[in-house]
Structure formats: C-alpha cells, structure tokens
Amino acid sequence: MMLLPRVAIIGNGQLGRMLKQAGAPMGLEVIPCDPSLDEPVALNPDDVVTVEQELWPDTPRSRQLTAHPGFLNARATQVIRDRLSEKSLLDHLKIGTAPWCNITADHTTEHLALVGEKLVIKRRQGGYDGRGQWRWKQGEPALDEWLGECIAEKMIPFEEEVSLIGARGHDGKCVFYPLTLNLHQQGILHASVAGLPRLEPLQATAEEWLTRIMVELDYVGVMAMECFVVDGTLLVNELAPRVHNSGHWTQAGANPSQFGLHLRAVADLPLHTPQIHGISVMWNLLGRDWSTDWLAVPGCDVHWYDKEIRPGRKVGHVNLNLPNHALLQDSLNQLADLLPEDDRSPLLWALREIQADSPA
C-alpha cells in the first residue's frame, strides 16, 4: 500500500471534522488539533500541516505546528489574515476590489470621505460572520478605536454575491468548482446555490483571478474567493486560505468534495477538475435544531456539528442535490413545508433563484 503523509489541521472545529471524514475513504489520517492547548502533537517528519482557520492563539502547540517543516502556506495565511495586506495583494495583482484605505492617525473624516460617501469599516484581523464591522457615512465622526486596527471600504451597491472555490497542487496545477451564488444576512452566510448556468459568463474571470492569487502566494490546497457582482462584473470581497462554508454543497454535488480536494492537494495526490452532478443548495443551520422528518425529502442530507445551540451559531448545514431544476424545486418546497414560516426565507430565496434560472 502507498504510504500517505498524515495531515495535521490547525483547528478542530467543523471544518477539521469534515476534513477528517473526507480523508477516511482514502486511508488518509487527518488530525484536527486544538491550537489553544499547550501539549505538543506527536508529529512525524513527513506529516503536512494545514489550517481550518486564519487566526489562532500563540501557544506552545501552535508554535510547534507552524514551525514544523511540513507547515504549508505560511505566507498565504499571514497575508490573508490581515485585511490590510489582503487588500494590498489584490491591488498589487490588479484584481478588482472595492475602493479602500487603511485607517491611521492621518485619516480624518475628510480622508474617509474621499474613499466614498458610505463606507464599511472592518477590523484588519478577526471579525467574521458580520462581527468587527461598522457602517459609516459622510458627516459622522470616526472612532479612535479604528486607528491602526481597521480598514475602510466603499460600500458597494452589488446585485449579487458569489464565491469561487479552487485548489492548487504542489505542481502548480489549478482546478475549480463552478461559481456559487450566496445569500448573506447581517454578514452571515445563510444559503448557497451551485450549478446555475447564468453564472457561467463570470467563471473565466474568476478562475483567472484566483489562479493569479494562488500562484503569487505559492499556495497549495483549497482557497475560496468571495466576490460582489456589480453591473455584470466581479469585485473581490474576501479570500479564505482554507475550505469554506460556501463550498459545503460539494459534499453532495461534486466529486471530489472541497474537503477531499484539499486533502489531495496538500498530500501531493493527483488533482482533476471536479465532476459536478445536478444542481445543489446548501442551507446553514443557525442556532436551531433539526428534525429527522427532513430526511424524507429527496436529495436532502443533514450535517450536524454536535455543537451547543446558541442564537446565530452555525451548528450544522443541509445539502440538497437533485439532477435538475424541477426536482430540486420540488424538494425545496417539501422541506420548506416542514419548517416554521419564519425559518423558510433562505430556502425560498434559493427556490426563486433556481426558478429564475430554469430552462424555458
């Protein structure tokens, strides 16, 4: 049997758990590691180390993992974890993004107004799922707490939000999934739809941009690129140097999934363009339980994270995959009928998008 490297993951949340599940069929040992602990991990010299999160505490264990010779993507993680260096990278590569500035002591409200009349202030590090962000408009004061801690971006009147999940191997080969349409509310991803033909005209540009980014960073593994669609063109919003929530649909709608693809890439196994089947919807379970009745809906798979349920917390997701628009619409309607009315909006959004994209 071929000897495969073990893959240690910095982070032991749901992404690490799903990476471990994806490694099992290949006989690939995946070790999610809680970076907040002090105890060292028993690593072999030929192990590889990758991440499921961009930030982690400075502990003896995290220092051990990042000092291991098999730690991948140190530069990429360093660049992307800070929105200042991330935005600077996009500008350097001449990739479209919203006008922005770093907020320093020299950036008065007059300077901010030069970026735009309405801005989104974002913490340079941390701040995800809508946290660590403020809205600012001309005439309002700037807050001292932003100085040296935040960037300011022009608020973009986008039509849609999409993401591209791609991967790059040790040999430089890049492969991609089709663009995914996403629904965010208050900065939190609620649902995704993949397999919409109307997004195909944007695919080539998205792939060219993400290729440029991964090559520049000498990146190995899966990376996500979140974008706004503005007047039929793309603007990059954020990058993620890891598997991503908007790629969870690949567990049902692609071979390999983003988790299997990431492991193939970091373990230096062969990559091929993922094979896509049917059309897919992913629905995030936010601060709510689920019902076994959902499993009676054709094409419905539930992924539960075994987390304590708290308001707004991602505790699981549901994937629906069917061969065509009509069958998926039927399943979405069936699942929506099993939910309280105030829980249906992400599924009804997905249903509208699929109906609008259905063949005449």
Rank of each mutant, 00 (worst) to 15 (best):
M1P: 13
P5E: 04
I10A: 10
M18W: 14
M18N: 14
M18P: 12
A24T: 13
L28I: 08
L28E: 09
D34P: 11
P40G: 05
D47N: 05
L55I: 13
L55A: 09
P57W: 03
T59L: 09
S62N: 08
Q64P: 10
R83I: 11
H92I: 07
K94T: 12
T97Y: 01
T108R: 00
T109K: 09
G116W: 05
G116Q: 09
E117V: 03
E117Y: 13
V120K: 04
R123L: 14
G132W: 06
G132E: 04
D144K: 14
C150H: 00
I151A: 02
K154G: 06
I156G: 12
A167S: 14
R168N: 07
C174W: 03
N182P: 07
L183N: 06
A191T: 13
V193F: 03
A194Q: 13
G195K: 01
R198D: 07
L199H: 11
Q203E: 10
T205L: 12
L210Y: 09
M214E: 06
M214K: 06
L217D: 07
M225G: 04
T233D: 12
L234K: 04
L235E: 15
A240S: 15
N245T: 06
F259C: 05
F259L: 09
G260D: 01
H262W: 03
L263D: 00
R264A: 14
A265Y: 02
A267Y: 03
A267L: 03
D268H: 13
Q275I: 07
H277K: 12
S280F: 14
R288E: 10
D293T: 01
L295S: 06
A296H: 14
W304K: 05
D306E: 13
P311Y: 05
P311S: 09
G312M: 06
K314E: 06
K314M: 08
V318Q: 08
L322F: 02
P323G: 15
H325P: 02
L327Y: 02
L328P: 06
D330M: 02
L335F: 15
A336R: 05
P340F: 01
E341V: 14
R344P: 10
R344F: 08
S345L: 10
R352Y: 02
